[in-house]
Amino acid sequence: MNDRLSRKDWLKHGLRALVVGGPGTLKADVLAKQLGVSRGSFYWHFRNLADFHDALLAYWQTTSTQAVIEGLTADVPQKDRLFVLVQRALSADTSLERAMRLWAANAPAVASVLAEVDRERINYLGSLLTEHDVSTSDAVERAKLIYWTYLGRMDVAAKDQMNVSDQTLAAFVAAMQD
């Protein structure tokens, strides 16, 4: 690899490094070595490690939440958005989500961003439910249940217990919308 990495290249690699090696790998020298470049390339894009961490969190928040919401809004009919979102969330690779939550356990700044992401996701789920005439107070409570289902799925160790049929998923979503 050459020294002409973009800021986005560093951020993408940072997320991969977090998944593979944990937050201890989010250091300029470690990342540069993994990428086969000098640390100067890192410092060309980031003032310091804290700046990189802030940028990494912002990039993760944008790609894992805001871009997902924007994509659903643009590509999925309103009536199908909740089902599609739940279906995608429950079949997605959760390794990055798990790594972020582990990092947040020992890093208050990360925990703060994670709490913001959780609120944003729950609020969006709630808005999808209110589009199906669920009262605002019920929508918030049901959104939490849906989100907790997603979070709980990350802790299921047996791969054969990870999936449910689309029929079961549709019944779950319908129950949340009723």
Rank of each mutant, 00 (worst) to 15 (best):
3 D>V: 02
13 H>Q: 12
15 L>I: 13
18 L>I: 12
18 L>Q: 08
19 V>H: 06
19 V>Q: 15
20 V>W: 03
21 G>I: 08
22 G>V: 11
23 P>N: 15
27 K>A: 14
29 D>T: 15
31 L>M: 15
35 L>N: 10
36 G>N: 05
42 F>H: 03
42 F>N: 01
42 F>G: 05
43 Y>P: 03
45 H>N: 07
46 F>W: 02
52 F>E: 00
52 F>A: 06
54 D>T: 12
57 L>F: 09
58 A>W: 05
59 Y>R: 01
59 Y>S: 03
61 Q>P: 00
65 T>F: 11
66 Q>A: 13
68 V>L: 11
68 V>Q: 11
74 A>W: 11
79 K>Y: 05
80 D>E: 15
83 F>W: 13
88 R>T: 13
90 L>T: 14
90 L>D: 04
99 A>K: 11
100 M>K: 02
106 N>F: 07
106 N>P: 02
107 A>Q: 14
108 P>Q: 03
108 P>V: 04
114 L>N: 05
120 E>M: 13
120 E>K: 11
122 I>F: 04
125 L>Y: 12
131 E>C: 12
139 A>I: 07
142 R>D: 01
148 W>G: 03
155 D>Q: 13
165 S>K: 11
165 S>N: 01
171 A>G: 00
174 A>T: 06
176 M>I: 02
176 M>Y: 00
178 D>A: 08
